[in-house]
Amino acid sequence: MLQRIKHLWHILRRLTGDDAYDIYLKHHLEFHDSSLDAPAALSRKEFFKLWQDSKWKGIKRCC
């Protein structure tokens, strides 16, 4: 039961973009943190700004 609720909560967070930063961090650690001169990960605030701005560039809603 608890597992179910956890799973639903996870889906809800993913659906709303609540966990976008966590995903980004995970991606960053996995692909960009291997070399020493890699750029540091963005802070939560910086990332959110970029994420929100890029999300609204194209057509996102229709009739």
């Binding site: 889906i11 993913r14 659906l15 995903i23 980004y24 995970k26 991606h27 960053h28 692909f31 970029l50 994420w51 890029s54 999300k55």
Partner: peptide, 17 residues
């Protein structure tokens, strides 16, 4: 995949979006 707009996502989440 770039962790920002290209992200492989659970199908129910994509459906919702």
């Amino acid at each position: 995949e770039n962790g920002r707009d290209f992200i492989p996502t659970n199908k129910w989440v994509v459906f919702g979006h």
